[in-house]
């Protein structure tokens, strides 16, 4: 236990900073990683706020909400960044979030008028494939084909859950039939996005569940135009990522200031090439070169956030049922 005390002391010493206010933001781990938006966002905000912005990484979106529930009203978070529309209803139910006055002229495919959460980026789920593959144009065609796909488990992964909602939003009561049709196409189901995407790149599957924006990474960062996303005629399910202010924050002004900052160019211009999503407000300079090559879905699908929890539970039961046969 001596060691424990030592480590605590050591870490305390390094993070003890003088009297400037601290804004604590809970977010998912990939946001704070060195290759995520975190470092650039922190730098840009600290230049203007006269504060110390501290990110706390907590797994992914669902883990983030889990942590918040564990902490309850004692949470040290001032802002929570990284929930999506599948989680906002449950997040509101905790009663931990405060309404905000922040708003902006969003470039979202849907209207946004949530009084609590502020969107910062969005994207469409899609199956990513090699550009030379004659890919499927809808779920039925995919199910009828011999093509192999890798997907993520909805119980442990955000995209996995997204696919569940996608099929449900597109097919409603026919969703179980679609899943049964897909079952022989599914090579395997992985815990998270990284494993699935890694397996796809290794050639384990013809398509992998990801985002329409994923090919932009290969194009922009690796000058590799060989990846594309399959465009489905049913439309693509949307993920909108949001942030919200904690009601019990001791830094309410700073939290508002951050949410306002979040929808400005300084934040939004970082998003496309770090989070590889569409910014919620397109920066003045537009999207980075390469984004114009991405497929544009005919239709944006989304289950309204207040219905999401119910739809989600039913969809999971159908999914488990169909794939466990």
């Amino acid at each position: 236990m001596k060691y424990l005390a030592f480590a605590t002391g050591l870490l305390a010493a390094t993070s003890a900073v003088a009297d400037i206010p601290v804004l604590t933001i809970y977010t998912y781990d990939s946001f704070v990683s060195d290759w995520g938006p975190g470092p650039a966002v922190e730098k840009a905000f600290e230049e203007t706020c006269g504060c110390d912005l501290q990110f706390v990484g907590a797994g992914d979106g669902a883990a983030l909400l889990g942590r918040l529930k564990l902490e309850g009203a004692r949470t040290k978070a001032d802002v929570v960044l990284g929930l999506d529309t599948n989680l906002t209803a449950a997040a509101k139910e905790t009663g931990l979030f405060a309404e905000t006055t922040v708003s902006a002229d969003y470039d979202l495919p849907v209207d946004w008028n949530d009084p609590v959460f502020v969107p910062y980026d969005w994207g469409y789920f899609a199956f990513v494939q090699n550009a030379d593959l004659d890919g499927p144009t809808d779920f039925r065609e995919l199910a009828d084909s011999d093509l192999k796909i890798v997907i993520q488990d909805p119980r442990s992964s955000t995209p996995g859950l997204g696919l569940l909602m996608w099929v449900k939003a597109a097919y409603g009561d026919d969703a179980p039939a679609i899943w049964e049709g897909l079952s022989d196409n599914i090579v395997t189901v992985t815990k998270g996005w990284s494993e699935a995407y890694g397996m796809f790149l290794e050639g384990e599957a013809d398509l992998v569940l990801s985002y329409t924006t994923s090919p932009a990474y290969h194009l922009i960062a690796e000058s590799d135009a060989s990846k594309t996303a399959a465009r489905f005629s049913e439309g693509h399910y949307m993920q909108i990522e949001v942030a919200g202010k904690i009601a019990g924050t001791d830094q309410p002004e700073l939290a508002d200031q951050f949410l306002q900052f979040m929808v400005t160019d300084a934040f939004q211009s970082v998003i496309p090439t770090t989070n590889w999503m569409y910014p919620a407000v397109t920066p003045e300079a537009g999207l980075p070169e390469g984004f114009e090559t991405l497929i544009q879905p005919e239709k944006a699908l989304m289950v309204p956030s207040d219905q999401a929890p119910k739809v989600r539970d039913a969809a999971l039961a159908e999914w488990l049922e169909a794939l466990s046969k």
Partner: peptide, 22 residues
């Protein structure tokens, strides 16, 4: 999960995961 090929290969640890985060 990865090599089991789907939700048939759900172990207790994954069930715990589901109970907790889902």
């Amino acid at each position: 999960l990865t090599l089991g090929g789907g939700p048939k290969a759900t172990t207790v640890e994954l069930a715990i995961y589901q109970a907790f985060r889902f």
